[in-house]
């Protein structure tokens, strides 16, 4: 059983949060704190790499949307990368995909920020 883990990386000066495991009611709080910490440091562009995320509940979705909203208000953006089929379905089922820029991998997402 996979517990959620978060790894921070800085690639070309863009913070990339690599998440793995299941994002549910409990673990989404850690994700929320990680994103809030970076936003408090005035990072305007963040990439969340979800290649190893197996499951995302509405709590996780809410945390991502709340962070996106904050960053948009700062003229920034939260970009998502490498969504797995089930997680991709969560975004399309709820219609949350219309709010996010979604990329096949974090390199593509970073390239887009750098444009």
């Amino acid at each position: 059983m996979s517990k959620m883990e978060i790894i921070h990386r800085l690639i070309e000066d863009i913070p990339v949060i690599i998440v793995s495991g299941k994002i549910d009611a409990v673990s989404s709080k850690d994700l929320g704190n990680a994103l809030a910490g970076l936003i408090d440091e005035n990072k305007r562009f963040l990439v969340v790499d979800m290649e190893k995320v197996e499951y995302l509940s509405s709590s996780g979705l809410r945390v991502l949307m709340a962070s996106l909203n904050k960053l948009k208000n700062m003229d920034g953006d939260l970009l998502l990368a490498a969504l797995q089929p089930f997680v991709k379905d969560v975004f399309s089922l709820t219609g949350a995909n219309r709010f996010f820029s979604i990329y096949p991998n974090h390199d593509e997402a970073i390239k887009n920020i750098k444009k």
Binding site: S57, S58, S59, L61, R62, M65, A66, L68, N69, K70, V90, L93, T94, G95, A96, F99
Partner: peptide, 24 residues
């Protein structure tokens, strides 16, 4: 789906987002 600008308020948005997601 609840509005995105309500998402920062957990109490206001969490239940309705969970219920909406469940219905999907």
């Amino acid at each position: 789906m609840p509005r995105i600008d309500f998402m920062h308020d957990e109490k206001a948005s969490a239940l309705s987002l969970a219920a909406f997601t469940m219905s999907r």
